[in-house]
């Protein structure tokens, strides 16, 4: 349980912020690479939480909207230092990226160097490749069923046609609820270890 007493050294707010800033500066790319970096800091390095708690936090974060890495960091900070930890920890992790992107926003507005323009275009094109990777990775986590396949294809079509994605997500949630009410049992990811559905 979340509130079980833990006999572990609790970091001070300052120590937490120092480690989070380090992750914020060096944690390039998000996803699993950064998750293992976070794990090495808070579980192996400082032993603020144990491995099982960490896995719990990662699983929980998948149920929240927003970036997985900042969610995991926020959940750990909340567990260690409450609201104050949540807010200050998130700020500590984000300020390096915030400053850098501000700097980029301002410089690219005044600076029009052809090499820089070319490099940026290269990165824009790379994003397309990275999105293909994200689609593939997410699809592996989706339970394979007729309803999920139809939902994915429908969303793809609606996005290309230009429908507001908020509406698409709303429709999907409604269909998900309807599907459950009809079948009376949830979709399952099969025997994947992340799925806890059958552990009543």
């Amino acid at each position: 349980m979340v509130n079980a007493p833990v006999r572990r050294p609790r970091p001070t707010l300052l120590a937490l912020m120092r480690v989070y800033t380090k992750i914020g500066i060096l944690g390039f790319g998000g996803g699993y690479a950064v998750l293992s970096f976070i794990r090495s800091e808070v579980v192996d390095g400082h032993a603020w939480i144990d491995a099982e708690q960490f896995d719990n936090v990662v699983e929980m974060s998948a149920f929240a909207p927003g970036p997985t890495t900042s969610n995991v960091l926020a959940a750990i900070a909340y567990r260690l230092q409450g609201w104050k930890g949540l807010v200050m920890g998130t700020i500590a992790a984000l300020w390096p990226s915030f400053l850098l992107i501000m700097l980029l926003a301002v410089t690219t507005r005044i600076l029009h160097n052809p090499w820089l323009t070319g490099a940026l275009h290269g990165i824009e094109v790379a994003v397309v490749g990275l999105l293909i990777d994200v689609v593939w990775t997410l699809w592996k986590d989706v339970p394979k069923a007729v309803v999920t396949a139809i939902l994915a294809l429908l969303s793809l079509a609606l996005t290309v046609l230009g429908l507001n994605p908020v509406i698409t997500i709303g429709i999907a949630a409604a269909i998900g609820l309807l599907d459950f009410l009809i079948r009376r049992q949830p979709l399952s990811r099969g025997s994947k270890p992340t799925s806890e559905i059958h552990h009543e």
């Binding site: 689609v135 793809l156 996005t159």
Partner: peptide, 13 residues
């Protein structure tokens, strides 16, 4: 799960 399937389609789009 339904939302995740839709998000996958959204990102593909």
């Amino acid at each position: 799960f339904a939302t995740l399937a839709a998000v996958t389609g959204l990102i593909a789009g």
